[in-house]
């Protein structure tokens, strides 16, 4: 980015320090929260951190009303905004590999080759897949779970007896996401590319050319763009009409450091980008303007990045436990 162009928002950032790897940041309404790898959940700065697990937290998923964590104690625990916790699952000390949240209070997690889906009423259904899943993701509509694993993905309706549907593509798949319009399923792969399927006909899409693995996805509020990490810019694929096949992605926030986190603004085409060198910037699609949020901090990768519901505040955290809260000018 050219310095002439960049505006700064750094004076609107409150700096936070956690001293431990930040796994996830988010908001319960006005209240920001931060989940740390050592097992701490910070709900607002004035309260002491919660530690619902015996030890470390491995995986986290969150929405507006709950944080669900999987720990190395084998437990899956839901934490609510008021700090109450519920044990949703106990895998007897086995590491929880993935967790995701679905509609109406549903949640899914995986441990080894077993995937468990728990609906809002507490009914748990299991599915065994041929290889250990790396990522899970619920469909935007209906109670349907997608599972990424070696050689493809599986889409499963946990409350229906129909056989899960297979989406084949050779190679190890990592994270998985449905498009908000429920027309596409996209995975990141070990071999530095994305793969996508059109749900209607299982048509394939390959999105390649990344120098690193994509470990962060974000859909724009209108569902027409998918922003991804893994390159020295946020790579943003167009999903209008038939998807990205044959179209070039937008490259936003080109810098000499790899993008580690992306988060789309919930109401505007503004993308928050976190980098491996600790920088955070915002890119506005309409005029390509770049706004500086954080100029590196202690230089460790941004590992958590999230907007609040209205897009007025942005929370971020880093590998070494640096963090911050941006409040946008009204």
């Amino acid at each position: 980015m050219s310095n002439a162009q960049i505006q700064t928002l750094t004076d609107r950032v409150t700096t936070l320090a956690f001293d431990q790897h930040v796994l996830k940041a988010g908001f319960f309404g006005e209240q920001p929260f931060f989940v740390l790898a050592d097992g701490a959940i910070h709900l607002g700065r004035e309260k002491p951190a919660l530690r619902p697990h015996d030890d470390a937290i491995l995986v986290v998923a969150a929405d507006q009303s709950r944080v669900v964590t999987g720990g190395d104690d084998g437990k899956v625990i839901e934490t609510q905004p008021d700090g109450t916790t519920h044990i949703l699952g106990d895998e007897k000390g086995r590491w929880i590999d993935a967790v995701t949240l679905g509609p109406d209070g549903s949640v899914a997690w995986s441990v080894g080759k077993t995937v468990r889906a728990r609906d809002g009423k507490g009914k748990i259904r299991d599915l065994t897949v041929p290889s250990t899943p790396q990522g899970l993701g619920f469909a935007p509509k209906g109670y349907r779970l997608a599972i990424a694993h070696i050689d493809g993905a599986t889409a499963w309706f946990p409350n229906m007896d129909a056989a899960p549907e297979k989406f084949d593509w050779k190679g190890p798949h990592l994270d998985i996401t449905f498009s908000p319009d429920n027309r596409f399923l996209v995975t990141s792969m070990q071999e530095n590319q994305l793969h996508g399927w059109r749900l209607s006909d299982k048509g394939h899409m390959r999105m390649s050319g990344y120098p690193g693995k994509t470990r962060s996805f974000a859909w724009s509020y209108d569902g027409l763009w998918l922003a991804t990490s893994g390159a020295e810019a946020a790579i943003v694929w167009p999903f209008a009409k038939d998807g990205p096949t044959g179209k070039a992605p937008r490259e936003c926030g080109i810098r000499p450091a790899r993008v580690s986190q992306v988060a789309f603004h919930p109401k505007a085409l503004v993308l928050a980008i976190g980098y491996e060198d600790g920088w955070v910037i915002l890119v506005r699609f309409t005029d390509a303007a770049e706004l500086l949020v954080r100029a590196g901090g202690d230089g460790t990768p941004i590992t958590a990045l999230a907007w609040d519901k209205d897009g007025k505040r942005l929370a971020f955290g880093s590998e070494s436990g640096g963090g911050g809260l941006l409040t946008l000018p009204v």
Binding site: H21, W95, Q134, G171, P172, Q190, S320, G321
Partner: peptide, 23 residues
């Protein structure tokens, strides 16, 4: 591309990634 000798341990990648978060 599925070469028989170019194999890696997927679980190890995941475990090491998680362990490395514990300073």
């Amino acid at each position: 591309n599925g070469c028989i000798c170019c194999t890696v341990r997927g679980d190890l990648i995941r475990i090491i990634e998680n362990l490395m978060k514990r300073k």
